[in-house]
Write a protein that binds this DNA or RNA. Sequence first.
DNA 1: CCCCGGGGTGAGCGGGCGCTTAGGAAGTCG
DNA 2: CGACTTCCTAAGCGCCCGCTCACCCCGGGG
Lengths: 205, 205
Amino acid sequence: MGAEGQQSGQWADVTPDAARRLVTAAVEAFAERGYHATTTRDIAGRAGMSPAALYIHYKTKEELLYRISIVGHRLALDILRRARDSAGSPADRLSEAVRCFVRWHAEHHTTARVVQYELGALAEEHYAEIVALRRDTDAAVRAIVEDGVAAGEFDTPDVPGTTLAVLSLCIDVARWFNAEGKRTPDEVGELYADLALRMVGYAKK
Amino acid sequence: MGAEGQQSGQWADVTPDAARRLVTAAVEAFAERGYHATTTRDIAGRAGMSPAALYIHYKTKEELLYRISIVGHRLALDILRRARDSAGSPADRLSEAVRCFVRWHAEHHTTARVVQYELGALAEEHYAEIVALRRDTDAAVRAIVEDGVAAGEFDTPDVPGTTLAVLSLCIDVARWFNAEGKRTPDEVGELYADLALRMVGYAKK
DNA sequence: CCCCGGGGTGAGCGGGCGCTTAGGAAGTCG
DNA sequence: CGACTTCCTAAGCGCCCGCTCACCCCGGGG
């Protein structure tokens, strides 16, 4: 059940091999049961190692969560920034941003679940670092919406509120998306891109 | 910081007094740290009692979560059903449903957080019961959207998908809403009611 | 007056937790 | 070959968890 294909692609640059196996095992376990309900013995077991092996590669269980969180947030931020800086009208860029962001949350919903819902378990200092990344995420989307309003393409009375809502909608995909369900990540991305345009009051031609 | 005013209103019919204090203490603790990170000693302490007192009123810590979950889900379902069955056009009813549902998630965001994000910690049988309630929740909103489409008031290509998205948007309010933030529950409800109408393609007159 | 039962406590049980430590197998280089 | 490094394990420490049990306090009925 664990195997999820391209899942491992995100962690390709984690070395050595044992450290990568541990981080992917941790993602699966945290996503399934939550950080606090996951034991270090469980993570090590999934990675095919003894409990003590975890501490050769990571100082604490929390460090594993932190690494996962950082990588995931940076990836998500990259996706949104790439869309923000792409060519095309604000509508094109918002549509692209939501489509890719949602597709990532659906495809990698195990990673995304950990990234979006286990923040509270981070140590104070690590949490602060993550919060900064999340502010950048918000800023990237807001920039697109503001562009659309300035260009007269969007009719958005409350830009910060609507930005928050669009992001919230996308993030929540990680909570409900089920790989065995009837919707593919591409389909959800397409649907959500359309919904986001509706939310910002984009008038179709 | 714990005091949240009308918070306790939801638990008014829990007796005796000690059982009510325990359930409200559990809501606060679960919302703050999550079910698994909360100890029975913490719950009892917040309620001003010894750890053993908890077990006079509840068989296990999980039973507390289950009670909270049931009460919260029934309340949420009532809110949506009342809106579904109210007088007015589908647009009025969807707007009312989202406004009230969101307001509840914002006002009682501690309860809502537990209700929406700690499901996974429930025992198998309790989980199944809750899932049934959640299906009813979805059905209530979908009924309104279908009415709007049938009446030609909404332009909604994907009714189940859009229903899911509207509910997902509302539920996620419990995750990000902060009582110290700058938006009141009423304001968020108003904004979200408008966004939901946009999502279903309601043409303003 | 005593007794009784429901709400409460202090002490503590068995167990699983995060993490550590002493040491061993396998490769590599002089 | 022996010394060193890298990666790993078996065993287990100290702690705190969910939960239990023997006992206590106190208001009300005979």
